[in-house]
């Protein structure tokens, strides 16, 4: 057993909250969870302004960052640039997921197959509108019953 239960949440820096929300909610199917510090006074005082979302079992915040990582070139679809989040879909739905990215006009790389000895099956790589790298994949261990993730909480 690991000494860490799970990843609680992530903060993802974006250039434009509305554009990012349309992408994460409209294309990836995320749900709005709650806004933190959306009063003008908070912004003036330099507090973090962010909106949190859930995507399946995962909680993340889209953060309007005061300082931003330099972004990779637009035509680079697969990379890390510090971090990359990967989300799993069921193997049976993988083709439909790719079709959905195509229909939404999201450029992607892949599918790329992973070695058989690992838990990952195939991945597609793409970016959000702010240039954060993302990955969608199916996993060979998709039917393994891992411990249930603890209840979501926001930070």
């Amino acid at each position: 057993m690991a000494d860490v239960e799970t990843l609680s949440h992530s903060g993802i820096s974006v250039h434009d909250l509305k554009e990012a929300e349309d992408f994460y909610c409209g294309i990836l199917g995320a749900q709005v969870h709650g806004a933190v510090n959306f009063v003008t006074e908070d912004t003036l005082k330099g507090r973090s302004v962010h909106q949190s979302y859930t995507l399946g079992d995962f909680l993340f915040a889209l953060v309007l960052a005061p300082d931003f990582m330099p972004m990779p070139p637009a035509d680079k679809l697969m990379g890390v640039n510090g971090f990359r989040h990967a989300f799993a879909v069921r193997h049976a739905d993988f083709d439909a997921t790719i079709a959905r990215l195509k229909a939404a006009g999201v450029p992607f790389k892949g599918p790329v197959g992973h070695p058989d000895k690992g838990p990952f099956g195939e991945s597609v790589y793409f970016k959000d509108p702010s240039g954060n790298f993302l990955e969608l994949l199916w996993r060979r261990d998709e039917n393994v019953d891992y411990a249930k993730a603890p209840q979501l909480d926001v930070g």
């Binding site: 992530s10 079992d57 995962f58 990967a86 799993a88 990952f120 990955e135 996993r139 998709e142 993730a149």
Partner: peptide, 9 residues
Amino acid sequence: LNGAFSHLV
């Protein structure tokens, strides 16, 4: 999505 979040790189 299956459990949604898979891994962080």
